[in-house]
Design a protein around this nucleic acid. Structure first.
Lengths: 227, 227
DNA sequence: GAACACATGATTGTATACAACTTTGGATGA
DNA sequence: TCATCCAAAGTTGTATACAATCATGTGTTC
């Protein structure tokens, strides 16, 4: 590898992997070999391990002792919990965002929605999914609550894994409508409405998943025969 | 070092450090030298680094590049945010806990309160503070929401740092009363009341801090003269 | 005496070497 | 044929060595 001496700290590698997971380029259950990742990024296992540990703490990666790192496969229960946690955090955060939003923020959110549409038109569903998540993160940022924003960032990324495992066809359409409506409420500084819309949006998202029972396709063959 | 071959993985070291921070045996700003920590636990820097990175992700430790790890010193803003995040998560979690609590859980919580009193009587304020935090974590556990419980665990630990920095004398008394009242509501399976009490309790906690302005004592002398 | 430059020491950042563990495949025996 | 055991390969866990970086103190210069 003769990359032009990139600043490849553990953070950047973690971010790169997280992005790939978020965009569904890395499927749940995928093995992340330390050697392999290290070779790709041109660093030693030391740095890769740091990155993987970080991702493990965000629950995007599962570390199995003496077995290595794998892209996480949230259980049904965890899937539900992730959305329940979002339901606790995001509606009130949307309300706060409505009270603080600036014109610049509105422009950014409009841009997000436009990019999302564009990605969908081009068939880049992974990218569209990522942007759709970033819309939520952006709202948390606007609310100016860094601590909560961090939690939401993590939950959104985990939601991407949940979607990869428990997505139930169709939808994806209502998505952008919901985001549009949210943006309108935010732009109008209507906190109460933004809160309600966010609550509703999350419920819609959750019901578009199939979190009832046994029908997720396990990506790891071996794992499949153990459960 | 000739310790009896402890199983000192990074997790245990991280937990040990976190516990010390939580009990105020390690003050905010304390330097955590890799060599020193490694010698204490009888492991190499490799393992210590992993532990410190984990704590850094939980915001209990701040990693300054090329300068090392320090026990975190939450800013005023972060201090407020931590309690605001708790206000979003804990009241509803307490309500859930009330709906699911079992007799065994009640016994555990009673025990917690008793231990807390005992620690206070013995003047072990650090331990009392830790137990007081664990009371909240225990409620999250009872609510059976592992994901939210994790967030609350982290926030409670960070609250301990906030208290170390911004504590405003007195109080500590109302604490246990609030916990008593909460326990009664939980035991009575009165979710609405548990939610209200938790909300009130968090507000009380927050107002017992001084989160208005410049009067926290920086523990690192050098840091003090830089701000 | 003050300011700057540089050498020195200490600490972290990264790579590599080796140890420990798990899996896999084949050889052995019943 | 089947089960068991053992050896080999591959991967992770940990320790150590070396490079890079920053802080400190000294010496030179003005």
């Amino acid at each position: 590898m003769t990359r032009p001496r990139m600043e490849n700290s553990a953070d950047e590698i973690a971010a790169s992997l997280a992005h790939a997971i978020h965009e569904h380029r890395l499927a749940p259950g995928s093995k992340l070999s330390e050697d392999e990742v290290g070779e790709i990024f041109g660093v030693s296992r030391t740095v890769v391990r740091a990155a993987l540990q970080r991702l493990s703490h965000s629950r995007l990666v599962e570390l199995k002792r003496n077995h290595g790192a794998f892209v996480a496969q949230p259980s049904l229960r965890e899937a539900r919990e992730v959305f329940e946690a979002r339901a606790l955090l995001e509606p009130r955060t949307a309300r706060s965002a409505a009270e603080r939003i600036t014109q610049a923020d509105i422009t950014i959110l409009e841009r997000h929605i436009a990019d999302e549409h564009e990605a969908l038109d081009k068939g880049l569903t992974g990218r569209a999914l990522y942007l759709s998540g970033q819309f939520h993160v952006e709202i948390a940022r606007i609310a100016d609550q860094a601590t909560v924003a961090e939690f939401i960032t993590q939950l959104v990324a985990r939601s991407s894994l949940v979607i990869a495992l428990y997505w139930q066809r169709r939808a994806a359409l209502c998505e952008s409508h919901a985001h549009h409506a949210l943006l309108r409420a935010l732009a109008a500084r209507d906190g109460a409405r933004a809160e309600d819309l966010m609550k509703e949006h999350l419920v819609t998202l959750m019901t578009s998943l199939d979190l009832r029972g046994r029908n997720a396709v396990p990506t790891s063959l071996r794992e499949a025969l153990r459960g």
